[in-house]
Design a protein around this nucleic acid. Structure first.
Lengths: 143, 143
DNA sequence: CTACAGGTTAGAGTGCGCTCTAAGTCAACA
DNA sequence: TGTTGACTTAGAGCGCACTCTAACCTGTAG
C-alpha cells in the first residue's frame, strides 16, 4: 500500500508518517518504480504499538531508542524489555496520580453540587479577597 | 510572602508565577511599597488546584475559563461545575485508555521475559523484513 | 558606601510533536 | 492531450507551556 492508504489505516497523516520515518521511528520504506513508498501491512502493527507508547506519554526520543534496538534484531530484546519495564513504572505512577486527581475533582464537584445559592466553599469565600486588581485583562497567549 | 517564597512553596518558578498572572490564571497580586508582589498564603490552595488541572491534562485555555468564572464569584458555581464535570469525563477516559495501554505493555514485557534466546514475538520475526534500508540515520529533531 | 540577593518589566527563546508549504514528479482517466 | 490527484523533497511554521534574558530597581548586611 502507498502512504495515503497507510495514513488512513494507521490514523496518522502522510506528513506524520514521513516525519516518523525521517526521525527514525519508522524504517525507511521500500520504493516503487516512481520512488513512492510501498508499505507492507505489517507496518501497521508497529505503528499501533508506537501509538500505545505515545498515548502513555513516552517521549519520542525514548521511542527512538526502542525503535533502534528493534531494528538491530533479536539480540536486543533484553534492552527493549528494560525500556518497557521502566516505562510501565512511569505509566503506573501516572495512573495513580490521575486517580488521585480524580478524587479531588469528585470532591470539588460534590461541593458545587451541594447547596448552590449559598457561598459554601473555599473559592466562593476567597473570591472577595481575590477579585480586585484584575481589571487588566491579560494578553492572551499568542492570540 | 513575596514571589520567591511562593515559588518555593508552590513548586513553580517565579517566572511561571508571573506568567500565570500575566495570562490570567492567577489574580493580580497586591504590591508592597516597592511594587513587589505580596501574596497571601491562600493563593497556595488555588495554585495547588491549578496543578491538579494541569496534571490531568486540562489545557491552559480551559483553566483560564475556569479562573475567570471563579473571579466573578459565587454566581458562577454552576458553570464551574459543568467545566469540572466535563473535565472529569475526559480524565476518566484517559484513565481507561492508560489502563488499556498498560495491559498491552504487560503482554509485551511478558513476551520479552519468556524465552530469551529464541525469536519469539512479532517484532523479532519481523526484524528480518524491516532491517534493511535504514543506514541513513535520521536527522535528529532539532539537534 | 558597597555588595548582593531578590524583585521588576517587555519581550525573546526553547523543546516538543507535529503540520504545512512550495515546487516539482508521476500515473491514470476523459 | 490536458487535468486531476496522489505522491516526492527540503524546509518553514505552529501551538503549547513554559523558560529565560537584559536592563533596571530596592532593601538589607557588612
Amino acid at each position: 500500500m502507498k502512504i495515503g492508504e497507510l495514513a488512513k489505516r494507521a490514523g496518522l497523516s502522510a506528513h506524520t508518517i514521513r516525519y516518523y520515518e525521517r526521525i527514525g521511528l519508522l524504517p525507511g520504506a521500500p520504493r516503487n518504480a516512481s520512488r513512492q513508498r510501498e508499505y507492507d501491512a505489517s507496518i501497521l502493527v508497529w505503528i499501533a504499538f508506537l501509538g500505545r507508547l505515545r498515548t502513555t506519554g513516552m517521549p519520542i526520543r525514548d521511542m527512538l531508542r526502542y525503535a533502534q534496538l528493534r531494528e538491530r534484531g533479536s539480540q536486543t530484546t533484553e534492552d527493549r524489555r528494560l525500556i518497557l519495564e521502566q516505562h510501565r513504572t512511569n505509566v503506573r505512577a501516572r495512573l495513580a496520580e490521575l486517580h488521585d486527581c480524580l478524587a479531588v475533582l469528585d470532591t470539588k464537584i460534590a461541593g458545587y453540587s451541594g447547596l448552590n445559592t449559598v457561598e459554601k466553599d473555599n473559592d466562593a469565600a476567597r473570591d472577595h479577597q481575590t477579585r480586585h486588581i484584575r481589571e487588566t485583562l491579560a494578553r492572551p497567549l499568542k492570540g
